[in-house]
């Protein structure tokens, strides 16, 4: 079964890179331009994993995580943060909000794919 990834990032460059990298890794990739767009696409895509940036207009990554976790149906949905930020307090905030993992850019293809596979193993 092909796993579905919803990648939320306000940078078109990053979205294209994720689409390319994760498609090559065997995932079905859907992208969203920011947090609001990501939440709108969440239901129609029905992803197996969400990857979200932190710094985004309209709704940031923390808001995305909190909104997703506020819905019972998504309580177990793996959420990976992909960001330029590496401060420990931000990692803690993401963890407390319900994130499953944190990846600092620039990401390594194999490590990102490996991380996604680890957190989506049922």
């Amino acid at each position: 079964m092909t796993l579905k990834v919803l990648a939320i990032d306000d940078s078109k460059t990053i979205r294209e890179m994720l689409r390319h990298t994760l498609s090559q890794g065997g995932f079905e990739v859907h992208v969203a331009d920011d947090g609001v767009d990501g939440l709108e696409k969440l239901e129609c895509v029905g992803p197996d994993v969400v990857i979200t940036d932190i710094n985004m207009p309209r709704l940031d990554g923390f808001g995305v995580i909190e909104k997703i976790r506020s819905q019972k149906v998504y309580s177990a949905l793996p959420i990976l943060v992909l960001t330029t930020e590496s401060a420990q307090d931000l990692k803690e905030r993401a963890k407390n909000s319900g994130a499953t993992g944190w990846v600092v850019k620039p990401f390594d293809d194999e490590k990102l794919i490996h991380a996604i596979k680890r957190i989506t193993v049922g």
Partner: peptide, 9 residues
């Protein structure tokens, strides 16, 4: 090149 950083909670 900084080492890529992956943390799983």
């Amino acid at each position: 090149k900084a080492e890529p950083d992956v943390t799983l909670f």
